[in-house]
Each structure stands twice: as structure tokens, then as C-alpha cells.
Design a protein around this nucleic acid. Structure first.
Length: 311
DNA sequence: AATGCTATCAACCGCAGCTAA
DNA sequence: TTTAGCTGCGGTTGATAGCAT
């Protein structure tokens, strides 16, 4: 969202507040640069809080509520703007699977991101995918789809982004605002092996006919865009090291064993972000698909969720 | 170029919880 | 204990940019 658009006052708003009588009334709608300036300078001098009094004292013809919202969602210096990184998206998916629509709680674990932003992200992008899949966004099936297709993809993107050729300019310039945890994570703790999609010798798919394991590639997965859905080795030979996916794919309640350190404020450092081990160790037999529609579901989910790339 | 449609996101609304009087 | 005011949260709306036709 660009600033000019945000700060530009709509025609209706101008009309609504144009005459002198209404100038004494509370303003609504988009904030002007002058209002922003008033709010910023007042808070710089007096601090935030006591919003109703602040609004009056600062000379703003706004409700305290409006001032608070404007400050917290837009003007506060540490607000991070721009697209959510794959790391952040992954964290949102995980925390939402744990807490549901507790946006403010989720936002507390994404420094610089607001509950409003996360809520918008969820509603406009995540729920859109659910609609395209024709499934309830909060349903177990959708969560399954997200975990089986979307999260591995995000992990792969994260891996790509940490490769030497990664162009950091595409991510937020104030990524450092993420704080120490993200800096430490990207440099040390993510433990993402360097690998290219072509390094996966074997593709796999969920064989829903027996409800269990990988077989050779089905034609429905011959889409090159589905490279994220590849495996370096058969599941039978998979490593058993605990990781985020192994722990989280319906081996029990998410809150019981998901790979985020409850004692450690849910920072990204709590996630095992090794995409290789994630894909190797997931037991697809737990994926809750109806056998009769499994082919369609897999195709549909994979294709649809792949398109989340654009998100 | 004009029009319609979709996606995005800032801002608003209603409600619930908290606190001080 | 009650009540009024404040704050924060989650759901929803509306403006607008961008894309498609």
C-alpha cells in the first residue's frame, strides 16, 4: 500500500468534512499528512496511551480509537512494511493452526507486523486459496493441504532465499527489524542444506489407494511447477530426526508437539526449517483424504497451493 | 480508451474485558 | 457492587490500484 494512496483523501471524505460546521465534528476516513504529523509529534513528546485525551490534546478531530489504530497500524516507527517473507508466512500458518483467529497474539510473534496486516493476509490470501479448493479455510482438510503443500513450498522458498544468489532487495529492507532472532536464524540456526530442485532424484505422490506411502510419480504430478513435491529418497528410508513436519502432521494435537519452543516466545528460531528432512519424514498416510477423490484433491491442492507463490 | 472485475489494505464498528471512581 | 470510560480485539467495509476485456 503506497503512502500517497493512503493519505489521499477521498472525494466523499473531502465533501463530508469540507464545511465549517462539520469541521468541529469528529473526522473519519483516510488520515491526512497533517493529522499524521500531529499525532507523531504529540506521541514523540508525550508518549502513547490515554488515546481519547491524546486525541483532544493533540488537536486531532479524531476519536481516541482512531488515533490508536493509526499509530499502531501505520505510524509507529518499528512497523515493517511490504510483503510477508516466507518465514513470516510460515509462522503465521503455524500459529494460526495453533491459536486460530487470535490475530494480536499471532502478531506478537512477528515483530513489526500488525494484527491487522496478518488478518488481512489471512483473509485475502489464505482464505482465497481455501475458496479455490472449495473447502473450509478452518477445516482440518485445509490445514492438511496447507501443511502438505504450502508449508513445504515456503520452506523451499526460504532455502532459495538463503542461497548466495538470493537478492535481498526483494524482501523488506528493514528485515533487521525482525530482531535478533531472525538474524541469528538466517545465519546460524535454519540449517537449510543447499540443494536445488534437480537434486531430488525421485518424485513421489500420496498413494491414497492404499492410504499410505509414496509410489512413483503419477501423471498428475508431472507438472514441473510441482518440484517442491519431490523427495530425495523413499519414505521407508527416511530419517527419523524430529522436525517440524514430523511432529506436526497430525501426530497429535498441534499445541502438544509442534516444533515451536513454547518457552522461547515462538520466535522463528524455534522452528526446524529444514525442508529436506521435512519432506523426507512426513508420513502421508496421515493425510486425511477421501480415497475416491484423492486424485482430484491432490491435483487441485497442489496446483492451487503452488499458486500461493504469488502471495 | 473505457469499462468492469478483483485484490488489497487502511479504517471503521461492535463487543468484551478491565479499571477507577 | 455498580457504572462509566477506556482499551484492545476480531469482523467487516469501502476506496483504490491494477488487471482483463
Amino acid at each position: 500500500m503506497n503512502t500517497t494512496r493512503t493519505l489521499a483523501m477521498s472525494t466523499t471524505t473531502k465533501k463530508e468534512f469540507g464545511n465549517s460546521k462539520e469541521e468541529n465534528e469528529l473526522r473519519r476516513g483516510p488520515w491526512t499528512l497533517e493529522e499524521d504529523s500531529l499525532l507523531i509529534h504529540y506521541i514523540a513528546r508525550h508518549g502513547e496511551g490515554r488515546w481519547n485525551m491524546l486525541a483532544k490534546s493533540a488537536g486531532l478531530k479524531r476519536t481516541g480509537k482512531s488515533c490508536r489504530l493509526r499509530w499502531l497500524n501505520y505510524l509507529k516507527p518499528d512497523i515493517k512494511r511490504g510483503n510477508l517473507t516466507p518465514q513470516e508466512q510460515l509462522l503465521i500458518l503455524e500459529l494460526h493452526s495453533k491459536w486460530g483467529n487470535r490475530w494480536s497474539k499471532i502478531a506478537q510473534h512477528l515483530p513489526g507486523r500488525t494484527d491487522n496486516e496478518i488478518k488481512n493476509y489471512w483473509r485475502t490470501r489464505v482464505q482465497k486459496q481455501a475458496r479455490q479448493l472449495n473447502i473450509e479455510s478452518g477445516s482440518k482438510r485445509f490445514i492438511d493441504a496447507v501443511k502438505c503443500f504450502w508449508m513445504p513450498r515456503l520452506l523451499q522458498k526460504m532455502e532459495q532465499n538463503t542461497s548466495p544468489s538470493f537478492d535481498n532487495s526483494s524482501s523488506m529492507t528493514n528485515m533487521n527489524n525482525f530482531g535478533n532472532s531472525i538474524e541469528a536464524s538466517t545465519s546460524n540456526s535454519f540449517n537449510i542444506p543447499s540443494m536445488s530442485p534437480s537434486s531430488y532424484p525421485q518424485r513421489g505422490f500420496i498413494d491414497a489407494s492404499n492410504g499410505n506411502h509414496l509410489s512413483t510419480m503419477s501423471t498428475s504430478f508431472n507438472n514441473p511447477s510441482l518440484d517442491f513435491f519431490q523427495f530425495s529418497q523413499p519414505l521407508e528410508n527416511s530419517k527419523s530426526a524430529p522436525n517440524v513436519f514430523e511432529n506436526n502432521f497430525y501426530n497429535g494435537p498441534i499445541q502438544d508437539n509442534f516444533c515451536i519452543d513454547d518457552t522461547n516466545n515462538y520466535g522463528l528460531e524455534g522452528l526446524n526449517l529444514d525442508p529436506m528432512s521435512s519432506m523426507e519424514t512426513y508420513d502421508f498416510s496421515q493425510f486425511d483424504l477421501q480415497t475416491t477423490e484423492s486424485g482430484w484433491m491432490l491435483d487441485n491442492m497442489a496446483n492451487t497451493l503452488w499458486n500461493m507463490d504469488s502471495m
